[in-house]
């Protein structure tokens, strides 16, 4: 019986995809990966870097193993790992992911000197007063007035948005961008139902709420539906 290879290499228009068998031992896998990459790809020495996507199927790779594979592939001159994808997660990772995708609802005032931080999206029912801060790894939705500081995507998500019934923030931060309120706000301006997001120039812009429908279609989590 001809044995199936533990490592199959496919070329795509974006680079290489490595499919790793998920039943063989990790040691066998590493050995075969090393020999296959050494054999075939030395010829390209003078060419530009080739991105590699690694797919480990149903094999769980620990962070150390991932690092090992990255190092192994990086040794092959012009190959660089773009991503390592696996079908499996540890329970811990799954919990974390779940947390990050959750909308956390909080009904209270965030007052001067207080900081409210959540791991996923924040739905705040109440105001953020001047001197108060709300932070979320995901989006921030405020049913109330934002008069303090809001920091969405605080773990580095550029796609995160901030929306508020009344948008009069002291400062807005999304990912690593920030902008502050003009020094003189005209108090007559209502700023009702507005949102903030990062535009193509990596500036935070404030817009009417409805513009999110087109700018961030991923906000809709309802699948199928009508």
């Amino acid at each position: 019986m001809k044995k199936r290879p533990n490592v199959t290499i496919k070329g795509t228009k974006d680079g290489l995809t490595l499919h790793l068998d998920d039943l063989c031992s990790y040691q066998d896998l590493k050995r075969e990966l090393d020999s296959k990459l050494s054999a075939g790809y030395r010829a390209h020495e003078d060419r530009q870097l080739i991105p590699v996507r690694v797919q480990s199927g149903n094999r769980y790779l620990s962070p150390e193993q991932k690092e090992e594979l990255r190092a192994l592939i990086r040794q092959k001159k012009n190959l660089v790992v773009d991503s390592i994808e696996s079908n499996v997660l540890t329970l811990e990772e799954a919990d974390k992911l779940h947390e990050e995708r959750q909308i956390i609802t909080v009904a209270r005032m965030v007052r001067s000197g207080q900081i409210l931080e959540v791991p996923g999206d924040l739905l705040l029912i109440g105001d953020v007063n001047p001197g108060g801060t709300v932070m979320a790894a995901g989006n921030i939705f405020i049913m109330g007035s934002l008069k303090g500081i809001a920091h969405a995507g605080c773990k580095g998500d550029d796609q995160a948005v901030i929306a508020a019934s009344s948008m009069k923030p002291a400062q807005l931060r999304i990912s690593d961008c920030y902008n502050r309120a003009p020094d003189h706000i005209k108090s007559e301006e209502k700023h009702e139902m507005e949102c903030a997001y990062i535009d193509q120039n990596r500036h935070i812009v404030v817009d009417r709420l409805q513009s999110l429908i087109h700018l961030r279609p991923d906000l809709t989590r309802l699948e199928g539906g009508r």
Binding site: M109, R111, S112, G113, Q114, N129, G131
Partner: peptide, 12 residues
């Protein structure tokens, strides 16, 4: 008013 807000937060 700002300081009152701070104190209310502590009292709560």
């Amino acid at each position: 008013v700002r300081d009152a807000d701070r104190i209310i937060g502590l009292l709560e």
